[in-house]
Write a protein that binds this DNA or RNA. Sequence first.
DNA 1: TAGTGGTCTAGACCACGTG
DNA 2: ACGTGGTCTAGACCACTAC
Lengths: 248, 248
Amino acid sequence: MNLALETAGALPLYREVKRLLTLRIAAHEWPPGTPLPSEGKLGGMFQVSIGTIRKAIDELVAERIVVRQQGRGTFVATHNPSRLLFHFFHIVPRKGERQLPRTRMLSFRRARASAEEAQKLQIASGEPVYRIRNLLLLADRPVILDDLVLPQRLFPDLTEKIFTGRDNTIYHLYQTRYGVNVLRTSERLRATIAESDAAKLLGLKKGAPLLEINRVALTYHNAPVELRRSLVDTSAHEYFSDLGKAER
Amino acid sequence: MNLALETAGALPLYREVKRLLTLRIAAHEWPPGTPLPSEGKLGGMFQVSIGTIRKAIDELVAERIVVRQQGRGTFVATHNPSRLLFHFFHIVPRKGERQLPRTRMLSFRRARASAEEAQKLQIASGEPVYRIRNLLLLADRPVILDDLVLPQRLFPDLTEKIFTGRDNTIYHLYQTRYGVNVLRTSERLRATIAESDAAKLLGLKKGAPLLEINRVALTYHNAPVELRRSLVDTSAHEYFSDLGKAER
DNA sequence: TAGTGGTCTAGACCACGTG
DNA sequence: ACGTGGTCTAGACCACTAC
């Protein structure tokens, strides 16, 4: 009964429902933290059975776009500290419990995207970007040096003050102030050697080994929204990767 | 209608079906590569509806224990090269297509598990293990130095000859000869510095940066079956991690 | 043509959270 | 008590594979 849908071209009904739901979530019709209409109501809206709605939402749950809570409803995912800790922050102590870092901004500049950055961010070469350098502390010791590149277009009025003033995570800021919801990341890691400036900031000798992480953060429809290069002192911490648990 | 199941203790029916299927797969009732009975037949065997069977198999598919093929059947997963390449081998060229490595064994020894190894492998300290050192080549150049630790109990008659003689991947050998099916891995990464022996084997200067990967390979019920420490020359290669696509 | 998995429906009942 | 998601069922039809 795809009365209201029809637009589909050989796409299974539940995929079409999923596509429409994702579009409306991305358009902030239901902002992060708010509940979707109940499954029954969605079935009425789209003129499909509740089973089809459930199958569509099943996939949104698997992609962490929404979160189900029995007895309460289905909610658009938000950037709370625990989500950040488990899905986006992979640096853990070699011994002991994982913890969230404190951030200290070192610099905030406006610049233009290099050809390589533009390609990775899927913007035009030379488009305005922010370049931000942060030092991340774990247990009050500097462990990570982050260099971020953000398209100015996505974060129009971002200032050093706004960035520093937040009392929550960076991705929470992107989400609440700019409606940019980071859903997943793609990372490439390699070993490198501390240059003099990184060594100084991390309290290491020049030539010490560092873990370099090049990250692209992605939002709905896998659109890139942030580049991040992290240099990590792995003398007391590690990068944790629990792959294959159930990806797609 | 849980006539034949009953054993469940507040466990949803489809989870109980999944548990029983996993047990029987792990017991090699249906070896890797063979099809399960059809969904209809399984429904009859367990006295549940086909929808419940499908939900159980859905989760087995998500965990890559089985693979569905429309029109053919549902098959127990096997270690073919493409599966290895995409799920278990994360080293990719910084530029260019990913490729499978060639392996050259450097040493094969029988030894006893250290306390730390025993703990990670969930065996008794001092239990017999194999220690194997391999050099992995990509595009005919040495890139990875692997040190493996395997419990002898799981691989009773393993010899250097068997290990070297295989013309397939290591995990394929575990599976076909010993019925040990590696399903997922848990890895911890850090940056380190090449010692003299590693440097020599990888064709690097002593003190060059290396990516160190400590892996635990897991089979059904998350039982550990192999420890592996890899040292990777990341001057021309990287570790690729596409996290958050849809894990659980 | 027969058998397999893939989609979709409709309805019953359970478990949980809130008032 | 009510509304939410969670489980389970039964049956129809479609799409693909093999013979």
